[in-house]
Amino acid sequence: MPGHVAANPEPARATAAVTGLILAGGRGSRLGDVDKGLLALNGLPLVQTVARRLARQVGPLLLSANRNLHRYRALGFEPITDGPYLDAGPLAGLRAGLLACGTPWLLAAPCDMPLLPLDLCRRLLLAAAFDDPRARVPFDGQRHHYACLLLPRTALAQVEAGLESGGRSVRELLHAIGWIGVDFAASGAHAFSNINTPADLAALAHPAEPP
């Protein structure tokens, strides 16, 4: 396991250096195959809640989805799909995002993490030198959140190689390209909570947070 670095409190680089990617291509099997991005939390689809938290942190913001594309378009998104890698898990979404990415870095986050830190991008980006090609993964004090990560655009080749060889694991990708964990324990117990069951959805319902 890599050592953890302290999240850097210095001012962020221009957000134009990072493209955001919301991953909404999963099956939602533990929720009865529901499309998680369209689940309502406090009156808003999850995808919009996550987008609001990411949009202020990044430059372009992309959405990876494989179904209900018309509904996502109605919400203002233009989804990118997994193409030839349907049902290949988050690696396929990362590939789609990296293909569409026009910035040096891609910040990916799942659509079911509605309480992501508002300084997530800044702290991941500044955890190492800007040109350090290692991925950066948040650590909440107990575990790493591999589906929420900052990837260099140059990782596309390793992602495609993994998919071609039948790989599906983000952790295997991280070991191939190198990565560091970034300590977000101070962000609170629910910062990286995600929704897999109706009970999870109910537990994360809360009054709207200030912008």
Rank of each mutant, 00 (worst) to 15 (best):
A157L: 12
Q158L: 11
Q158H: 14
Q158D: 15
V159D: 01
V159I: 09
V159G: 05
V159S: 07
V159A: 08
V159K: 06
E160V: 14
E160S: 10
A161F: 01
G162R: 14
L163S: 08
L163V: 09
L163Y: 06
E164A: 15
E164C: 11
E164S: 14
S165W: 00
S165D: 13
G166Y: 05
S169H: 07
E172R: 15
H175D: 14
A176G: 06
A176R: 12
G178K: 11
G178M: 10
W179A: 08
W179Q: 03
G181H: 01
G181L: 01
V182Q: 03
V182K: 04
V182H: 02
D183H: 01
D183N: 13
D183Q: 04
F184D: 01
F184R: 06
A185K: 08
A186S: 15
S187G: 00
G188Y: 07
A189L: 11
A189S: 13
A189V: 14
A189Y: 00
A191P: 01
F192K: 05
F192M: 05
S193Y: 10
S193H: 14
N194R: 13
I195H: 02
T197Q: 03
T197M: 05
A199S: 13
A199C: 01
D200K: 10
D200C: 12
D200I: 11
D200F: 05
